[in-house]
Nucleic acid binder design. Structure first.
Length: 588
RNA sequence: GCACUUGUAGCUCAAUUGGAUAGAGCACCUGACUACGGAUCAGGAGGUUAGGGGUUCGACUCCCUUCAAGUGCACCA
């Protein structure tokens, strides 16, 4: 729609002798209740025209109608200038822009972006919160790629620390040599089981100590299990072979389990970082910061940064004993990532409880003048809540990722069979379909919500398959495919109709917006924009489908036109859903 | 206590970033032709945008304030 903007700029210049920036032209979609497709808000120009908004709008409208052959007519309602573009223009858009394979395929912009997401701990299986993280990270990666970026999907695995030692210790004490092979338990679940066992035993010990007169705090520190876990961590850091071997073995089980979960979820990574490799990094940056005067040292030897001028606090960046804290590591890891890829942007998909941490981290890297510091972004998302409140692993109220996905497939199977839609499907195709639909419902449910908002999930009330849902959109796609195959559809960009019905025009207008939607979704890192767009598209298509007969169109030319329009819709629906990491079936 | 985030129909979410009469889905009610797939479509009902003040042609959106919820404020990660 740039040609409208350019012409509007020209209109203001010509009529009122004023230069306005093209960004100042507020183009918007014309609301349904009015005539036209494009609307210009003319209030801002009244100060140049020194006339009322209606008259200003009329003058600009008149100018545009004379200036642009594409403009068929215009009308003015209050200060709103509604422009009708000729059907010829929209039809031409369908054939020359939307139908070709190049549609919505951004030119590479020469920029690199890293998206770090998932970043699990290796002491327990993934839960619903991780699912949101993974889906967001993957989808944002797809969107950025579609917007022209070269994307590196990174996973920073938290594979060391006291929590890992807890699982290891409990396994040593209670495991009796249990392995995934011996018990048939998925590796991450097996390790998670011992993490829970540790916690139980630890709590028992705390109670025992309290019975002997110790305070809660004392008991927590003195319980034998926590001491043993801490000793184990020290041994790990010292490179003790027995501990390292156990650590490797148990992490191996977890990785096998994660691989399965990731596969089900349909996400993947280009690069893995392991905290066991990176946890000592960052100390050289401390020296650098001290030299540059960004950091300062306290008498006890600890190193800090003073961010009070930025409205934040003083923040510790190195302990008095010279060891790293979380911040130290993250500075080092940021540097490592940059050295590896020299990316222009670096996105961290991490929950909003770490907002403050990333605010500080990015500020520090900026103050140090680090390359790439401008491109840092924390994609902060809200927690997933259950009706009972927050998920708590110790209280057993977590929704397990594997269980959840299995349930979604089961529900998809139930619904599909109840409708009797898979008679004649091969068994393998059925399974594939249940997976596609179940995951489609789940992914869409989680992605349609603005990332930064917290999300309510009720496990008892199964995710809907009707209305504003993934399956609704998948269904629309399958339905289009069904019509196309009945008609033996072939791509043909030479069919000419001259006039559009209302729904047909609405549909094309919507289709032309797809590239812009991708760009805004990329700029805002928001899959929700794509999700809501694709839904709108599916809805308008269904309206079209009901109002207009395709196979029984009035004549052959019209039939072919509607087939092309249907094919274009199916393509955009499919591409849009793929940006969310959702597959669309040919039949369902 | 301080900081950040959120608050929109009974429920779950939108609102083109300051624009028109705040829109969808679920649930509820009514309807859809021996027609291309009824996981669909058309219609009804449902709102003091948490409350109050301000900024201006115009506010769900920006500012102030009160209230409610969440998160963070470790020499943990």
């Amino acid at each position: 729609m740039n040609f409208i903007i350019d012409a509007a700029v020209k209109a203001v210049k010509h009529l009122y002798q004023t230069d306005v920036a093209s960004a100042a032209i507020g183009l918007q979609e014309t609301r349904k209740e009015f005539e036209g497709q494009i609307t210009i808000v003319t209030f801002p120009f009244t100060k140049f025209s020194r006339k009322g908004p209606e008259q200003t709008a009329n003058e600009i409208g008149e100018f545009l109608k004379n200036e642009l052959t594409e403009v068929a007519d215009f009308n003015v309602v209050k200060g709103f200038l509604n422009i009708s573009i000729k059907d010829e223009y929209w039809i031409n858009q369908l054939y020359t822009q939307i139908l070709p394979d190049s549609f919505a395929l951004a030119q590479p912009n020469g920029k690199k972006v890293m998206v770090e997401y998932s970043s699990p701990n290796t002491n327990k299986p993934l839960h619903l919160g991780h699912v949101r993280n993974n889906l967001l990270g993957y989808s944002v990666s797809q969107i950025l790629e579609a917007a022209g970026y070269e994307v590196i999907k990174a996973n920073l695995v938290n594979d060391r620390g006291i929590h890992i030692c807890k699982s290891m210790l409990a396994w040593q004490k209670f495991g009796n040599g249990e392995t995934p092979a011996s018990s048939g338990l998925k590796g991450d679940h097996l390790v998670g089981k011992y993490y829970v066992l540790f916690d139980k035993a630890y709590k028992t010990q705390i109670e025992e100590l309290k019975a002997t007169g110790q305070t809660e705090d004392e008991a927590k520190k003195n319980a034998p299990f926590i001491k043993e876990a801490q000793q184990m961590l020290q041994k790990w850091e010292a490179g003790d072979t027995e501990v390292i071997d156990l650590w490797k073995t148990m992490n191996g089980w977890v990785y096998a389990g994660f691989a399965e979960t990731y596969k089900q979820m349909g996400v993947n990574f280009d690069k893995y970082y392991y905290e066991s490799d990176t946890y000592l990094l960052g100390k050289d940056i401390i020296d650098e910061g001290l030299q540059k005067g960004v950091f300062f040292k306290k008498p006890d030897g600890s190193v800090w940064i003073d961010l009070t001028a930025d409205g934040l606090d003083e923040k510790l960046v190195l302990r008095s004993d010279g060891t790293s804290v979380y911040m130290t590591q993250d500075m080092g890891t940021a540097q490592l990532k940059y050295n590896d890829y020299h990316m222009d942007k670096s996105i961290y998909v991490v929950g909003n409880e770490q907002d403050y941490h990333f605010k500080v981290l990015f500020l520090i890297l900026n103050k140090l003048g680090k390359a790439g510091a401008d491109g840092l972004f924390h994609l902060s998302y809200g927690m997933v809540d259950l009706p009972s409140g927050k998920m708590k692993s110790r209280e057993g109220t977590v929704v397990d990722a594997d269980d959840l996905m299995a349930e979604m497939e089961a529900t998809a199977k139930e619904q599909t069979e109840a409708m009797g839609k898979v008679d004649g499907f091969a068994e393998a195709d059925k399974l594939q379909l249940y997976h596609t639909i179940g995951m489609g419902a789940l992914k869409y449910f989680l992605l349609k919500v603005d990332p930064k908002k917290r999300l309510l999930f009720d496990p008892n009330e199964s995710v809907d398959f009707q209305g504003h849902t993934g399956p609704f959109i998948q269904y629309t796609h399958a339905r289009i495919k069904s019509v196309l195959s009945r008609a033996d559809y072939q791509l043909d960009t030479n069919i000419v109709v001259t006039e559009l019905a209302g729904v047909e025009r609405d549909l094309i207008v919507l289709l032309t917006q797809f590239p812009d939607i991708i760009q805004s979704a990329a700029n805002e890192y928001s899959p929700a924009l794509i999700a809501n767009y694709v839904y709108e598209l599916a809805k308008v298509y269904n309206k079209f489908y009901h109002e207009k007969s395709i196979l029984q169109a009035e004549d052959e030319v019209l039939k072919q036109f509607r087939l092309q329009l249907s094919a274009a819709s199916a393509k955009v629906i499919s591409k849009g859903m793929n940006l969310l990491g959702i597959d669309v079936p040919e039949r369902m």
